Simulated assay, not measured.
Amino acid sequence: MRTPYQIVADHYAASDRHDLAAMFADVANDVQWTEMAGFPCAGTHVGPAQVVEKVFQVLGAEWEGYRFVLERLVDGGDTVVGIGDYHARHRKTGKPMQVRVTHVWQVQGGKVRRFEQFTDTLLVARAMQP
């Protein structure tokens, strides 16, 4: 069985390839996916379908070239932390955005059970303001 670290690393590799199916291959059907308050997709979304609809589709619609660039992955057993940067250009304002971000993953039984994002929402909001 793959370790939690490998599962999260595989998720990020799939994200780099824009392979949504592979990104969610190891995500539990009842995953709790939390985007930080103040972020465009803020809230806790339950299940892969809701995460795709309320997070990834929204980000794709509002931001051009949206991507997460992983700097390092920290292995904490069942808890894995991804640290890096978001990069994008807001479609309505044309303003670029680059912000530091931390993702905290909880993996149990070979499935991602929880995800929580921490980022500087003020910098994101500034890119969205005309």
Score class of each variant (00 low, 15 high):
2 R>P: 00
2 R>H: 01
4 P>W: 01
6 Q>C: 07
7 I>L: 13
9 A>P: 01
14 A>S: 11
14 A>H: 09
15 S>W: 09
17 R>H: 09
18 H>T: 00
21 A>F: 15
22 A>N: 13
22 A>P: 09
24 F>E: 03
24 F>M: 06
25 A>Q: 04
29 N>R: 14
31 V>D: 12
31 V>Q: 12
32 Q>S: 15
33 W>A: 04
37 A>L: 05
41 C>L: 12
44 T>D: 04
44 T>F: 00
46 V>Q: 10
47 G>C: 13
47 G>P: 14
47 G>D: 11
48 P>R: 04
51 V>C: 08
52 V>N: 11
55 V>D: 03
58 V>A: 06
62 E>L: 06
63 W>E: 09
64 E>T: 08
64 E>D: 11
64 E>K: 09
66 Y>M: 12
66 Y>C: 06
67 R>L: 07
68 F>V: 12
69 V>N: 11
70 L>R: 12
72 R>I: 11
73 L>Y: 04
75 D>H: 03
76 G>P: 02
77 G>K: 01
77 G>T: 00
78 D>E: 07
80 V>D: 02
80 V>A: 03
81 V>F: 03
82 G>D: 14
82 G>I: 02
83 I>Y: 07
84 G>L: 02
84 G>V: 03
85 D>R: 07
86 Y>G: 15
86 Y>D: 13
86 Y>W: 09
89 R>M: 11
93 T>Q: 05
94 G>S: 07
95 K>G: 00
99 V>R: 10
102 T>R: 01
102 T>N: 10
102 T>P: 06
104 V>K: 09
104 V>A: 08
105 W>K: 07
105 W>A: 10
105 W>P: 05
107 V>R: 08
109 G>I: 02
110 G>L: 06
111 K>C: 02
114 R>P: 02
114 R>E: 13
114 R>A: 11
117 Q>V: 08
119 T>L: 14
120 D>N: 12
120 D>T: 13
125 A>R: 15
128 M>I: 06
129 Q>T: 06
130 P>Y: 08
